[in-house]
Design a protein around this nucleic acid. Structure first.
Lengths: 204, 204, 204, 204
DNA sequence: TATGAATGAGAATTCATTCAT
DNA sequence: AATGAATGAATTCTCATTCAT
């Protein structure tokens, strides 16, 4: 009894991308088979091509869809915020820790690091639209802190990278090594130490 | 003067691994073709198989060969070191910056992050032999600093990860985004800010 | 004023065949896509299958529909004709030249030559119904001319093929090479020379 | 017991083209499967790609290889010839008849007519290198005959096409309809009638 | 009747690996 | 030891056909 052919033109693309993310996460872009993606989405091979012209296009759509929205949220949060930046950062920790622990998107860094070099267009897009934007956001926050006397003057753009680095490390760890740990190392430990150390290190 | 066969036999594996690193760096593991590796080493396809039983084996040999030696150096340096740890770290910065800038090995993180998940054996080996060992080394150094009153007490294992994180970020940046920058962002800026901020953040 | 459904139903098959001829002419049978045919007819893919059970069936219908009528006209014209055959042939030239130049049907020879071998049934039908019939018609005319002393005695069946050959050549030329000509070669030149030469060659 | 892997880099391409001609003749370009071509040449699928980068390339190589040599022979023959052209033409008949009857190359016209429109480059090449050249050759011969008083003055380029037309018709007939004939129509009948009629038609 | 989303068999192409030389 | 021609499993992508709406 084959599952009924249903018309779902509207929901399909998202379902397919979900499946694609899962399969890419498991096997990497090159090793992932279109058939697997389709199967995981409960569709047939050909259906994929109804919505995306190629495997590359799926990867692109995935990246373009999955991230930008989240970033907008963060941008809005910072724009609204008044007062010292430190507490804001401190409050972000449990959210980020949960994000990394829970999964789904936490495979993206590995995927991007591993595959982006084959997609120059996409890499440029991602750099401009996500990475640069996120770094600017953080640098701006740091500068605000400096101006307010909360932080000592420092190279804000470099600092922005410092803020982000442990998050990257944690996501990568989870994606690459976590499964081989006897007793899993809680990402929160790193993030706590991070905020703690960083705020002291940046303080005026 | 044709290269003597005798001398060739000894150096061949290393030459092949060099070529493999270059090709893997350029195209990733899955996309790299044995023929390319052979060609880059000035050998024929069949020759590869005289030294390595499979493409996977080349990747493994690459990882196993390229890193452990460097790590041993670092371990020795720390073992010999006496006195406060901070200056040691500070002195390491230009070396590391040069390492990242120069290339060669700086593609390895990207390669490992992207491909290690397909080599569980190797991932375990790498985690145990390189990553855990490096982190322990740094954690031990931190602990030494704490004991000496140089640093305030903190979760040393988490701190070890903080120490490493910006290096990872920098290597990844270089491998993934650097080519799309209008004016390249000097890794030294991050590393300087890192040491500066970290030492303050850790200080007693 | 949306086209009435009732009227539509009757004209649809012909519209679809028209579209099919155009697409087959452009891309050949194997390369033509059902979707293209449908699109060119302003219909949806599924609609094609309401009228024709398969792509093959469309090709068959096309061949069966497009030619036989024209042949009947020629047959009638000859049957009615009295007197010497030469002038009749001479009068046919401009008509044929126009037919070739104008297009539409002039792609059929190419299509048939290229694809008929995959349709044995259809090939047999076409041979019997069109080709043999046309050749017999011409052979009969020649025989009539011989009997009337207009032509010298000759193998009439072979002569029939000679009559037709330059038409075939012209149609093929138009379909295959014409688009690469700097200054197009006027088919009428061949047909004029043909009639001129042929009538002398056949004359008693 | 699989046939031994032998090294035959030099003979392989020709063998593969032979096989390709056979398979294209049987099934047409689009329907021919690479696997069939390989199998008919006693090779594996991959071997084809060692010598030709694509199916298209095989077709091209086939056309470029198979014809030009033969044409050169004809050109040479005419260049050497002295005296009236008629007898030369008459002597060519049995050769051409044999060529058509025997096969091999006689499928090429069908193939070319059916598929050339998908290969504009190749079509142009073929037109220039083979067709135009052959037609010029014949036109020149006709002109020579006119100058010598052997033929009456006529549009030589049109005449060239008349000379060729029955050959084309015969080849096409053989490739498309011959298999459906109860009693095969001997191509020689057409060619005999052709030379006979044509020479009278052209005569001064 | 008409639609077009869904299907999946089928074909081209790639490339790690083998092995005769 | 070295070579590179040969192999064929594996994968992407196409498109005729089906069928729920």
């Amino acid at each position: 009894m084959p599952p009924l052919r249903r018309r779902r033109k509207d929901t399909r693309p998202a379902e397919l991308l979900d499946a694609a993310l899962a399969v890419f996460a498991e096997r990497g872009f090159a090793t992932a088979r279109m058939e697997d993606i389709a199967a995981r989405a409960g569709a047939a091979k050909g259906t994929l091509y109804l919505y995306f012209p190629s495997k590359e296009a799926i990867f692109e759509a995935l990246v373009r869809t999955m991230i930008v929205p989240n970033l907008a949220l963060a941008e809005a949060a910072l724009a609204e915020h008044r007062g010292p930046v430190g507490p804001l950062l401190r409050r972000a920790v449990p959210v980020l820790a949960a994000l990394v622990r829970e999964g789904r998107l936490s495979v993206l860094p590995r995927l991007l690091i591993g595959e982006l070099h084959k997609f120059p267009e996409l890499a440029r897009f991602y750099k401009t639209t996500v990475v640069d934007r996120a770094l600017s956001l953080i640098a701006a926050a740091h500068r605000r802190g400096v101006d307010a006397g909360e932080f000592r003057p420092q190279d804000s753009e470099a600092v922005a990278r410092l803020v982000v680095a442990p998050l990257l490390l944690t996501a990568v760890w989870r994606a690459v090594f976590a499964r081989y740990e006897e007793e899993p190392f809680d990402p929160a430990r790193v993030l706590d130490a991070h905020v703690d150390t960083l705020l002291r290190g940046l303080a005026a």
